[in-house]
């Protein structure tokens, strides 16, 4: 299950909170362009998307979103530095082959990066693994190991450690379980983490 499906439209509001009116926004893995369209209507952003799946791209174009059909990682190299105010990566970090390069690329072409990912440290994952002795399957990670799109598993602690090591400034973070916010013990209780980060000058 995708983060977006878990969140319903809750992530729109959350991401919307992070993105000021009139910004230049790139959504990596924009799907059918629903989030971009929403941001365009609510926040008058200059919206761009990248999506690999042809059918989703066609839907996005048909609803009037500017979208490029192509590979997300290759795409990052095509934009000039600082082309965007915000670059969004919702739900695909754990699916990218080189997640670090993706985030670095986002921070090259965007002043800020919005990154949402499912938290592999959630208690359900831990318990599933501990008691089944198998690759964990949970509502958030429902796939079998052999057909899962997820190829990198990370937790909230992992992400923050990386942010420190790479000297990214965490400007905001929001943790969610279902559509409820989690304040306490996020690495244990949150299903999804959303970070707003930027490069420290």
């Amino acid at each position: 299950m995708k983060v977006k499906e878990v969140l319903g439209r809750a992530d729109y509001a959350l991401i919307g909170e992070m993105i000021p009116h009139g910004s230049r926004v790139l959504d990596l893995g924009c799907g059918d362009g629903a989030l971009l369209l929403w941001l365009k209507e609510q926040k008058s952003v200059q919206a761009r998307g990248v999506e690999k799946n042809r059918e989703l791209v066609q839907k996005a174009i048909a609803r009037g979103v500017t979208v490029y059909q192509g590979d997300l990682e290759e795409s990052l190299a095509e934009y000039p530095p600082g082309a965007f105010d915000y670059v969004i990566l919702s739900q695909t970090l754990q699916e990218s082959r080189r997640p670090l390069a993706v985030i670095e690329g986002m921070l090259r072409i965007g002043r800020h990066a919005v990154i949402a990912f499912p938290n592999f440290g959630h208690w359900r994952v831990r318990i599933a693994h501990l008691f089944s002795g198998r690759a964990p399957k949970t509502p958030l990670f429902p796939h079998n190991w052999y057909d899962s799109p997820n190829i990198h598993f990370l937790t909230i602690i992992d992400f923050e450690e990386l942010a420190r090591a790479r000297d990214w400034a965490i400007e905001r973070k929001v943790f969610l379980s279902g559509d409820r916010r989690v304040e306490l013990l996020p690495n244990l209780l949150a299903e999804v983490a959303i970070y707003l980060v930027k490069r420290r000058q």
Partner: peptide
């Protein structure tokens, strides 16, 4: 795209 122009692209099947 190199100058962040408004361009939409799709490869049809």
């Amino acid at each position: 795209r190199a100058r962040n122009h408004d361009v939409t692209y799709c490869e049809l099947s």
